[in-house]
Design a protein around this nucleic acid. Structure first.
Lengths: 217, 217
DNA sequence: TGCCAATGTAAGCAACCACTTGCATACACC
DNA sequence: GGTGTATGCAAGTGGTTGCTTACATTGGCA
């Protein structure tokens, strides 16, 4: 493994667990198994190293794609949520630290914030398309709905480390639980038997049987 | 204003914008308009000051209460969301910083996490009561639903400072947008004309008229 | 007036920080 | 063998940090 690369990943790891002030050049170099001077010879300054490490870390793409034309909203939103949630969980520590230092290093925070802003636009467009195609109700706002689904996944991914008792579901099944509620919110039918392996146990036993809505009581 | 109190609020403010490593005793004292030595004479050490400041800050109660017995779910959940959201917005900087330092100072993070964990239990109990009383559908999980509503409000409150363009709604109306979606998710009717002042403009024009659900197409 | 507690000023300490200089070592390539 | 390049080691620079010591000032109260 190249020395530069070792230093970059070490910088990211130390940053995650100590913040930029706690990420001292000594600690980063030691984490990379490299002399501290090598760090300066390669990157010139700590600031340059940190900014490069953060930039290349948040450039990692999210591997969840929504089709331009929706076909099976339940299945597509579930797959999308799984991918996005996994990405959030993988980078949870970095995201938390970068958010915590937004006031002191707004550029780092903005670099981390670029990704979700773009993803939000994609989801919003997909949801609007659902409405156009008659695949969902039309009496809700795609922007708010997109914020809702993303926010739910985000705060689960961030809070799971801080309040484990608040999240009894496994990371694997949590997104499905939220998506189920979300589909009801936007007026999409609950998924049919698409995923026989994981479809059934995610709802309460009396599933669907008592779906009463009080209409003008 | 007492010197102790001035130091505590100054410590909190500096912590919010610089983190615990950036919150130097010199800076806190200067922020409080007090000599640095007075800080040590009052609190003995920086760690003691910070822990007391954080403890008393996160002890501030959330002023949103849910009734033990639900009467008007839409109105009650909307009021609850408004209160909780306002509290989150007020403490957003502190919460972000504390979350970012979870790895280095887990006790501070746990002290901040205590409040939402308790609130989550209250909301979950309320939602379960809604189901028992037949005021909502029964084919969803109160735990996941509580996480969803809280997570939505939380990530809006945290992200609004970092990505203003992602949140075009004002802080005043954002909770209502989410609550509207949430009520649909849990199968509660949209609020009737309870809030004539703010009820109408929060839904799309064709409100309720095209609430179609594809049933076994 | 004298006393005492709270606060301020000045100076400094050891530890740590980012970063530099000077020199030794290793290894690849000609 | 000679040369250049990458790395390591030792030491040190000026600056900051948490915290201390010693002494002066203030103001309320007996």
């Amino acid at each position: 493994m190249d020395v530069r690369e070792k230093l970059l990943t070490a910088a990211l790891k130390v940053f995650e667990e100590a913040g930029s002030r706690g990420a001292t050049t000594r600690r980063i170099a030691s984490e990379a198994g490299v002399n501290e001077i090598t760090l300066f010879r390669h990157f010139g300054s700590k600031a340059a190293l940190m900014s490069e490490a953060l930039a290349c870390a948040s450039a990692a793409p999210v591997e969840n794609r929504l089709p331009a034309e929706p076909v099976d909203p339940a299945r597509e939103l579930l797959a999308w949520s799984h991918g996005g949630y996994a990405h959030l969980r993988r980078n949870a520590a970095m995201i938390r630290t970068a958010m915590g230092e937004m006031e002191q290093a707004p550029d780092a925070a903005r670099c981390v914030a670029a990704n979700p802003a773009r993803v939000h636009e994609q989801l919003k467009a997909y949801l609007a398309r659902l409405q156009e195609r008659g695949l969902a109700s039309t009496d809700w706002d795609p922007h708010a709905a997109s914020s809702m689904l993303m926010g739910t996944l985000f705060s689960d991914a961030m809070g799971r480390d801080m309040m484990p008792e608040k999240y009894p579901y496994s990371e694997a099944e949590a997104p499905a639980r939220y998506v189920l509620l979300f589909l009801r919110a936007i007026g999409v039918d609950a998924p049919a038997a698409h995923h026989p392996a994981e479809g059934s146990p995610l709802q309460d036993p009396e599933r669907g049987s008592t779906h009463q809505r009080r209409r003008d009581p």
